[in-house]
Design a protein around this nucleic acid. Structure first.
Lengths: 144, 144
DNA sequence: CACATATATTCTCCTTGAAGCATATACCGG
DNA sequence: CCGGTATATGCTTCAAGGAGAATATATGTG
């Protein structure tokens, strides 16, 4: 049952937070770190878990990996994501994640030179306001 | 996060089937056995799991235990059950469960003398068409 | 090339939970 | 009280998966 697969992805708080953020648009790992405030390994692993189950897909942007929700979602997945989205409005955790997401978006939208806030190098500068599909950046290939 | 708790309940096929059936109305363990065609231990354990997480409640009816969805559901739970209900229409597994449920309901609705089909004793005869809240049976008490 | 950054992978430790057998418990009819 | 039915629980085995430290890999910079 595909449904079970979906629910397996949803039964962990970190993954829920990740998916919730992804419904707002693609995001790279370092942004997840900033927003979720969780160690890199943890985030990377959960993203891997989600990818392995076909919930998300990746695209490289220079050094970054930009994750997004899988494009062709099943009926079940669409429904459950909508449901999650709905539930998320109450959970304070999700709300604060969203706030932090807005900040990151603002920073990045301004083309300020930080990916993870480290503000060191800048690379292709592709971190636009994550909501838009970002027309064409540098290397639209690669995925799995 | 309560959401996680909910999803934990949903990420097992047997539990999904159980919950799906319960959205149609209360059901006793022996009927679950008949419908799901799974061993008693398995069903009983999963029902216990669901009860421990506050998704279902029990009521005794003589020798039987009649399980039902918890009466006051959270917004999240309501939403997810609705979503499940929606997804269930496609899954053949759920559909055949439903068919078997109808048969059981028919049998029981006719007041035929079987709980598990064994047709031995009959007891208070409370197994009415499970869909209706069953106004008042014998022992509306008991729960945990 | 050496280095720094972004991210993934490996390995280990530990907990949860699923399955199944055997057994316990509760209730019923006689 | 006895035997039988309905259901739960204890125990064991086993696999999945979560956390974290250390390390590997890839890529861009000078």
């Amino acid at each position: 049952m595909e449904l079970v697969r979906i629910y397996e992805c949803l039964c962990d708080a970190t993954r829920l937070r990740i998916l919730h953020l992804l419904t707002e648009g693609p995001l790279c790992v370092c942004h997840f770190q900033t927003i979720l405030q969780e160690p890199q390994v943890k985030i990377s692993k959960h993203l891997g878990y989600l990818k392995a189950r076909g919930m998300v897909e990746v695209r490289r942007e220079g050094t970054w990996r930009v994750y997004s929700l899988v494009t062709d979602k099943s009926r079940e997945l669409t429904g459950n994501l909508a449901c999650l989205q709905d539930c998320a409005q109450e959970e304070p955790q999700f709300r604060s994640d969203l706030e932090r997401l807005r900040k990151v978006q603002a920073r990045v939208g301004d083309r300020s030179p930080a990916c993870c806030g480290r503000g060191k190098k800048l690379a292709p500068m592709i971190h636009r306001r994550t909501a838009r599909p970002s027309p064409r950046t540098r290397n639209p290939t690669a995925q799995t």
